[in-house]
């Protein structure tokens, strides 16, 4: 899957531009090293013997685009991944959100939904679920269908249950789902406040104001310029004193936003500062 290297950088660049022009899906600012691997991988999986073959399929067969997007975007996720992150949400962030009459949370790049169910469980246990709306978005419509179903492999439940306990979970994890053969179906009361929608971080704009935005392990696939653009989108979509949660190896440290946000714990969670503080800071600057 690593060799043979079927793709030259210039060819890949050209193809990504063509896809953007034809279909409106713009991958040209995805991190080069990573997208090249993904495209190489799809050539191997779908048995294209040359890059030209892949290109032909993509340009001539619009139905293949969906498959391409599914394979290019990484949809590896789990419930309560990095339990310490969810513990910080439970202990430090959700209590602050309680001061709002309605809480709006945006989970950007929600993939198959494991994270949004994790958030709903925390909201339920902190008695906030009734006044919370979870907006879960992804570029890929087919993962959203899975997310909406809330049905995950039963084989994962042992890991998820451990993660849940390590994140400060208070109940029996198995109370939240019904086991059915090989699958665990999560309870409807968790789903009631979830809104699923496609949203493309590259091309779509802000659609609401939120008190908490979570986007984990999505930005690592973007190059620096696109990251900056998406950080701006999040900034525009976040209320003052709102929170931004990123993946365990993602950071605002290399971004312009850094000076207007402060990290609230050792976890990758930042809080947007008030306008006046921002002014003082920029005056000093």
């Amino acid at each position: 899957m690593i060799e043979p290297d079927l793709i030259r950088d210039e060819e890949l660049e050209k193809l990504l531009i063509e896809i953007a022009e034809l279909y409106g899906y713009d991958f040209t600012q995805y991190s080069k090293a990573s997208i090249k691997r993904r495209v190489n991988r799809i050539c191997v999986i779908d048995k294209f013997t040359s890059f030209a073959e892949l290109r032909y399929q993509l340009i001539k067969q619009p139905s293949y685009l969906q498959r391409f997007i599914e394979e290019i975007t990484v949809n590896v996720t789990e419930m309560f991944r990095d339990p310490s992150f969810y513990k910080a949400l439970r202990d430090d962030v959700f209590p602050q959100l309680d001061t709002y009459p309605i809480i709006r949370i945006w989970l950007a790049g929600c993939s198959t939904g494991e994270e949004v169910y994790s958030l709903a469980i925390i909201a339920k246990e902190t008695n906030l679920i009734q006044k919370t709306l979870f907006y879960a978005t992804d570029i890929n419509p087919s993962v959203l269908e899975k997310a909406r179903d809330g049905i995950f492999p039963i084989s994962q439940m042992k890991l998820y249950s451990e993660n849940y306990i390590n994140s400060g979970g208070l109940k029996n994890f198995s109370d939240y789902y019904t086991a059915n053969y090989d699958f665990a179906r999560f309870n409807d009361d968790l789903k009631q406040k979830m809104i699923f929608s496609t949203h493309n971080l590259v091309s779509d704009r802000s659609f609401n104001e939120f008190q908490l935005i979570i986007c984990r392990n999505v930005l690592i696939y973007f190059d620096k310029d696109l990251q900056a653009k998406v950080f701006k989108l999040f900034d525009d979509s976040l209320e003052h004193l709102g929170f931004l949660g990123l993946g365990s190896k993602e950071t605002l440290r290399f971004s312009q936003l850094d000076k207007h946000y402060h990290q609230i714990s050792t976890e990758k969670i930042w809080r947007k500062q008030k306008e006046d503080k921002r002014l003082i800071k920029s005056n000093n600057f």
Partner: peptide, 14 residues
């Protein structure tokens, strides 16, 4: 992974 500008890219794929 490494990028052309000698920065590190992390990747959580398979």
């Amino acid at each position: 992974l490494l990028e052309q500008d000698k920065t590190i890219s992390l990747d959580f794929s398979e």
